[in-house]
């Protein structure tokens, strides 16, 4: 599966409070949550994000609260994948569980700049920056996690067992 889009670049330690501030957590409808994604940090995000766009983050992306509302809001906003240097562990798990593709690649993050056009091949982990022509390989996804993605998320995986 290929994902193509423009990138939204973020720094290190993007926490779940800035991804979806707690004042919106009295909602659990994902399309409503998506309207408030990065509400304070990047008010332009929800207005301009397009289907298939890619978030590029630094170290420890998704740290803080366990709120699954964070990856849900990102996924529902139209983001096709996240590329980061590393992820906080609960966010990492949550993203796989809800079927939001996330990749780890230090070199790609350092090289990609805001609004570059990037494509990601989820099967191979190849990341291509169409703007600069540079190619990168993401860290392979553990087999077990791949099985969850192939099943279509954790719920489907459990149902199949």
């Amino acid at each position: 599966m290929n994902i193509k889009g423009k990138t939204w670049k973020f720094g290190d330690n993007i926490d779940t409070d800035v991804i979806i501030p707690a004042r919106f957590l009295n909602l659990s409808d994902k399309s409503e949550l998506a309207k408030h994604c990065f509400a304070d940090l990047r008010p332009d995000f929800v207005k301009e994000v397009q289907e298939g766009d890619i978030i590029v983050g630094g170290n420890n992306f998704g740290c803080g609260s366990s709120r699954e509302h964070a990856p849900l809001a990102i996924k529902e906003s139209g983001i096709g994948a996240i590329i980061a240097k590393s992820y906080a562990r609960i966010f990492y798990r949550n993203a796989f569980n809800i079927g939001l593709p996330i990749l780890e690649c230090q070199e790609a993050v350092d090289s990609i700049t805001e609004h570059d056009k990037v494509s990601v091949d989820l099967a191979t982990g190849e990341i291509v920056n169409k703007t600069t022509g540079k190619k990168f390989s993401a860290k392979p996804i553990p087999d077990f996690m791949r099985q969850i993605i192939q099943a279509g998320g954790l719920v489907e995986y459990i149902k199949n067992q």
Binding site: S65, S66, E68, R93, N94, N97, G153, L154
Partner: peptide
């Protein structure tokens, strides 16, 4: 809830997960 790790004080293994888990 991410602060589920609190119960480690008792000598338990406890960790936070998301809603799907």
């Amino acid at each position: 809830d991410s602060h589920t790790c609190t119960y480690g004080a008792l000598g338990a293994f406890s960790t936070g997960v998301g809603s799907t888990d």
